[in-house]
Each structure stands twice: as C-alpha cells, then as structure tokens.
Amino acid sequence: MTRRHLITVAAAATLGAVGAFRGLRAKDEPEGLPGSPGGPGFDETYRGRRIQGEPTTGERDHGPDGWRVTVDGQPLGLMRRSDGSYLSMLDHYQSYATPLAAARGAVDELGPHQALSGRLH
C-alpha cells in the first residue's frame, strides 16, 4: 500500500467513527420514557433537588419539541442541539440525550449549596 492510500483509509475510518459517535447520544435514549423526546414530563428529586419538566410542543417561546424545566422551582434554560441532544445554560460544553438528563447535569453543576436563581439560566 502506498502512503497516500493508507492516509485515505485512515481518514475514512476516522470520519466514520466520528459520525457513528455523534449519532449515539440522542438515539440511545428510548423514546416514550419520562423526560425523553416524545415522552411525558418528569417530576423527581435528584441529589436533594426537585427537578420538573414538561413538554411545550407548539408554544411560541419554546418552539417545537421544547421543554419547560425547573430546578427547585427556578427555570432552567435548555437548548436543543442539531443532533437532537440538549444542553443547559449552566453547562454549554456537555450535551445530554434528554431534558431529564440535562436537568440532572445542571444539578451536578450547581453542587449542593448553590441555587439556580442568580445564575445564568
């Protein structure tokens, strides 16, 4: 094999692996479960915090497939990414498969003593 051929094969394999990885996040979460796209809302206590979420499909402020999510009654801003995953306004670098997972991630980011109010959301 020539060097050019090896580089081409390696590049194709890398691009294929990246494409497969990107598709895993949103697709791995089963639909219809609480907090998943197309599923019902959620209301749970996670690490001592009450997180609630409800789908807002069709509402002007949240857009199609939007969610209204709160942590201890304070609104948490979520954004849907082009790959179908979600990120919270508390952590722009981590994406999550569902709004529920994003809310749990926000609680992890807040820690045990910080409140959502007064933070960017």
Results as ranks from 00 to 15, higher is better:
M1P: 14
M1H: 14
M1S: 15
T2A: 05
T2N: 13
R3K: 00
R3S: 08
R4W: 00
R4N: 00
R4L: 11
R4H: 04
H5Q: 14
H5W: 05
L6A: 12
I7V: 14
T8A: 15
V9T: 06
A10N: 09
A10P: 00
A11Q: 12
A12E: 07
A12K: 02
A12N: 04
T14N: 13
G16H: 02
A17K: 02
V18Y: 03
V18T: 03
G19E: 03
G19L: 12
F21Y: 15
F21D: 10
R22Y: 04
G23P: 03
L24H: 01
L24N: 04
R25Q: 03
A26D: 06
A26L: 00
D28N: 07
D28E: 09
P30R: 13
G32D: 02
L33A: 02
P34L: 06
G35Q: 01
P37L: 08
G38V: 12
G38M: 08
G39V: 07
P40N: 09
G41R: 01
F42N: 07
D43M: 09
E44H: 02
R47W: 01
R47G: 04
R47V: 01
R47A: 14
G48N: 11
G48C: 11
G48M: 05
R49A: 15
R49H: 13
R49N: 13
R50V: 12
R50W: 06
I51V: 06
I51F: 09
Q52V: 15
G53C: 07
E54S: 08
E54G: 10
P55T: 14
T56S: 13
T57I: 00
T57E: 04
R60W: 11
R60P: 07
R60A: 14
R60Y: 10
H62A: 10
H62T: 14
G63H: 01
G63D: 09
G63C: 09
P64N: 12
P64F: 04
D65K: 13
D65S: 11
G66C: 04
G66V: 07
G66Y: 04
G66Q: 07
W67C: 09
V69W: 10
V69Y: 11
V71L: 07
D72M: 12
G73P: 10
Q74W: 14
P75W: 08
P75Y: 09
G77W: 08
G77T: 11
G77L: 11
L78G: 10
R80Q: 12
R80F: 01
R80L: 09
G84C: 11
G84R: 09
G84W: 10
G84N: 04
Y86C: 07
L87I: 13
L87V: 13
L87Q: 14
S88Y: 09
S88I: 00
S88C: 13
M89F: 15
M89Q: 15
L90S: 04
L90T: 07
L90V: 08
L90P: 05
H92Y: 12
H92N: 12
H92I: 03
Q94H: 15
S95P: 06
Y96K: 02
Y96W: 13
A97Q: 02
A97S: 11
P99Q: 03
P99G: 08
A102Q: 01
A102K: 05
A103E: 01
R104V: 00
G105A: 06
V107C: 03
V107K: 03
V107Q: 00
E109G: 02
E109K: 14
L110S: 04
L110E: 00
G111M: 10
Q114V: 11
A115T: 11
L116V: 06
L116D: 01
S117F: 11
S117L: 07
G118Y: 12
H121L: 14
